[in-house]
Design a protein around this nucleic acid. Structure first.
Lengths: 103, 103
DNA sequence: ATACTATGCATAGGAAAGCGAGGTATATGA
DNA sequence: TCATATACCTCGCTTTCCTATGCATAGTAT
């Protein structure tokens, strides 16, 4: 189950502490949401490419266990974007909850 | 500002207490969200048609001030759908907030 | 009188997000 | 040897939403 539009923000949040690669980012989102959020690979990879294109993340290749992995690192503008997106999420999710009810 | 996918649920919620027509439903969502949620007419009307097609709302025409208005009434299956959507919203929005942080 | 705004409904075209399915490749364990 | 997990990618499709446009009426301001 997923909420459209939240993925870019969730990816940025996943990279705040340290760089990571696509597959691990997806696992992390699933685990940190207790299995509720589950973005598919066909969604995740294009999203990462888009974020890189926008300059909010940078990527580099790192060889691990003989195989290359594409790591992503959040940029300065990415941290700004994250802060903005986080605030927006709070605002709009509270607005919906205001109508649909909390309890 | 809007959250994709929430409109059908917000419409059903708007009809719980009494039937209403498109224009008023849109106004209600905007007001009850304190101006934050603002779905456009080009979004709302097709959404209403779809909900009617699915059988969760019924429509009828009522002439008011000499002009016809299309009123929508929530059906029994609409109430069931609303309960389900409401629970889903809680679940998934909490999952996102779990990751993005509450404070 | 005329024009603008609000009300009220509707459709068409296009963008964006996400999914499913498919492809490629390696490592590991049964 | 065969399946599964890891790891990345792309294509086509559907859904959702927005903008723009059209039509029509009522009220208000100029």
């Amino acid at each position: 189950m997923n909420l459209k539009g939240t993925l870019p923000t969730l990816i940025l949040e996943a990279l705040v502490k340290e760089p990571s690669h696509g597959y691990r980012i997806a696992q992390g989102i699933k685990e940190r949401s207790q299995g509720i959020l589950d973005f598919k690979e066909g969604t995740l990879y294009p999203a990462l490419h888009k974020l890189e294109n926008e300059g909010v993340v940078e990527s580099y290749e790192e060889v691990e266990k003989g195989r290359p992995r594409r790591y992503y690192r959040i940029t300065a503008s990415g941290r700004t974007a994250l802060a903005k997106n986080r605030a927006e999420w709070r605002k709009v999710s509270r607005a919906v909850t205001l109508i649909l009810g909390e309890a």
